[in-house]
């Protein structure tokens, strides 16, 4: 029972990061109707920038959020302005391939610069844990989960209360009506891509606290992001939070009670199941 509780709570903690990591993908799809395969690139870049700042200057990963989030915004907005924007009227598969290309380039540049060895980022609190009654929790997981939730609160505030957030939602819901109300749709697109990428890069930063640093980081977590977004409903903050937590818990339970090797199988299975069910929904 104690084990179960520990695993459960730990799964919830990881799940909030999953949700945070996935939200950018859903946001970009919602506003631009573009599947951002470069999401994997931004996740990986976040991890590497954080690792490099820590390795070179000894900067704490949580502090480097101040670098990776704005950097992600700038890079994302730049990718939208220079690449995605040119393809705005072409079929979806074109942007899909284009962004896949962006990801391949980033991944291979990382191989070139840092090599293929797995690295890890150790801080003074990396191995600390906290005993709460019968449950033992790793400090990094608690911290990362707290930051993710904080990120969600900030995001919800922006989307609900600011002009930029309202404009983002308007473009997602009816682009034509947004243009008629004088909302500059192309600027909103760049902003949405920037925010989505900032979320991905800062998620990479948070996750560098307990995942190894490798150019393949993005591949693994892009798939999980898809899973969360499909399950949670593209731009629905609440849905994505629940889906992320659900996946985190399912993975941790599987890893603990069945086998650690099956951890990543869970997201595949959930993704397939979710897609099949959505399909049935759509047909029914």
């Amino acid at each position: 029972m104690t084990d179960f509780l520990s695993v459960l709570v730990s799964g919830v903690l990881v799940g909030t990061v999953y949700a945070y990591m996935a939200y950018g993908l859903g946001l970009i799809y919602g506003v631009l109707r573009v599947v951002n395969l470069a999401h994997g690139a931004f996740l990986t870049l976040g991890v590497y920038v954080t690792w490099w700042l820590h390795f070179t200057f000894g900067i704490d990963p949580l502090v480097s959020l101040l670098v990776t989030a704005p950097l992600g915004f700038g890079l994302g907005a730049a990718v939208e302005r220079t690449l995605v924007f040119r393809l705005r009227d072409s079929p979806p598969v074109t942007t899909l391939l284009l962004l896949f290309g962006v990801w391949l380039i980033v991944r291979n540049v990382l191989y070139l610069v840092f090599g293929g060895t797995d690295r890890s980022l150790l801080t003074s609190y990396s191995l600390e844990s906290l005993a709460l009654g019968p449950v033992t929790l790793s400090i990094p997981r608690i911290v990362v989960s707290a930051f993710s939730l904080l990120g969600f609160v900030a995001l919800a505030f922006v989307l609900k209360r600011t002009w930029a957030g309202l404009a983002l939602r308007a473009v997602a819901q009816d682009r034509g009506a947004a243009a008629l109300s004088g909302i500059p749709v192309d600027r909103v697109w760049a902003t949405a891509f920037g925010i989505g990428s900032a979320l991905a890069m800062s998620a990479g930063t948070l996750m560098s606290l307990f995942y190894s640093v490798t150019p393949e980081f993005g591949a693994r977590f892009l798939l999980k992001s898809f899973c969360v977004v499909v399950l949670g409903g593209l731009t629905n903050i609440g849905g994505i939070l629940v889906a992320g937590i659900g996946l985190g818990v399912a993975e941790d339970l599987t890893a603990f009670y069945i086998h650690t090797g099956f951890r990543d199988v869970v997201s595949f299975l959930v993704l397939v199941a979710a897609l099949v069910m959505r399909r049935v929904d759509a047909e029914g």
Partner: peptide, 17 residues
């Protein structure tokens, strides 16, 4: 063409963009 998943108030406010 109102924005369906925004409240009436949000629709109005955004009209003033």
């Amino acid at each position: 063409r109102v924005w369906p998943e925004m409240t009436v108030m949000e629709n109005l406010r955004l009209g003033a963009w």
